[in-house]
Design a binder for these strands. Sequence first.
DNA 1: CCGGAGAGCGTACGAACGTACACTCCGGCG
DNA 2: CGCCGGAGTGTACGTTCGTACGCTCTCCGG
Lengths: 191, 191
Amino acid sequence: MATGHTDPQRRERILAATLDLIAEEGIARVSHRRIAQRAGVPLGSMTYHFSGIEQLLREAFGRFTDHIVAVFDEHLGAAADRDQAREAVADLVHELSEDSQRDLVLTQELYTLAARRPAYRELTHEWMRRSRVHLEKHFDPDTARQLDALIEGLTLHRALAREPHGRALTLEAIARVTATERRAPQGSGTP
Amino acid sequence: MATGHTDPQRRERILAATLDLIAEEGIARVSHRRIAQRAGVPLGSMTYHFSGIEQLLREAFGRFTDHIVAVFDEHLGAAADRDQAREAVADLVHELSEDSQRDLVLTQELYTLAARRPAYRELTHEWMRRSRVHLEKHFDPDTARQLDALIEGLTLHRALAREPHGRALTLEAIARVTATERRAPQGSGTP
DNA sequence: CCGGAGAGCGTACGAACGTACACTCCGGCG
DNA sequence: CGCCGGAGTGTACGTTCGTACGCTCTCCGG
């Protein structure tokens, strides 16, 4: 085509197609050619817009974490008190584990990369940080940390289980971890 | 070489090399040639012992889940009462998130596959089932389920966090999820 | 002592890969 | 009106891939 001018939509379409491809077929099947075909752009565009597959992947996963963090913000930002926060967390767990296979798969792919490569770990750090900011508006830091881990586990197990657990169980787990009546039987100190 | 007889060690070495390669470089970089080189076997052996990469991966991850389930059994099987079970769970979380980057990475790779392919999901189902068997010796089924998810989340977050949380926090989270008896106050061993 | 059966291997082939780079085309400037 | 710079692309190259298959070599029954 050669329009003669910058076309920012091309770039976006490539990034979106990259995430779609990873979600559907996995990192192992990602290639310039497949992405290009899916995005409807010529092969040459790939190396024109991105210096290599590495940069492309990092940028694509950057978009993805932006999206996920937005979902967190959307759910948890609205919570006004502790009980609403608990409900919001339950909603979050169920949305992430039920709605879209896409987000689940991409999350796993990102964790897999993060487990090995520090560059991707930065993305998960930022993600964890942001979610904890929300949780710490309603719970003390230690509890927030535990709850954050619980969210992760509940989401994953619900998504992978043969018979996913119901909302009642999710809420009960959340309630237990966030129950603040601390009679200190073992003496673990926190505010 | 052509020894003229079946050599079961070859097969094992190939499977071990497959897991090593996945752990170090990721599914995306797995190939017959790389595995063969790492295992010290000729390329021709790959197609001789395994019908294709698909079968090879499934079998390799089968070995891996056997290993992980054994770690679960080892830690949780010895626990005699509820408190020992809590300690055992904490040990488990810390061993999996600290000791070996290898197990963590392989776990993530498996979850990634399981999130997309039912064949691999069977492996995770069996894994979850086995771990719940142990947990249900000390806790009621719902609690076991919540605890199982918590283990998952704590392990992952500890492994990926910039500053991993300490054992006290792990134990506190476990205590909280397992503390509340729905019917009776804390007491007897098996539900 | 020998010959066949079959375990195990070396190699060749077509497809797909990432990347480089010469090229085309168009809007704007002179 | 003509031409020039740079955005954007088509294609070619060297590499690596999975897999098939004819071959070698060892062991054992006779």
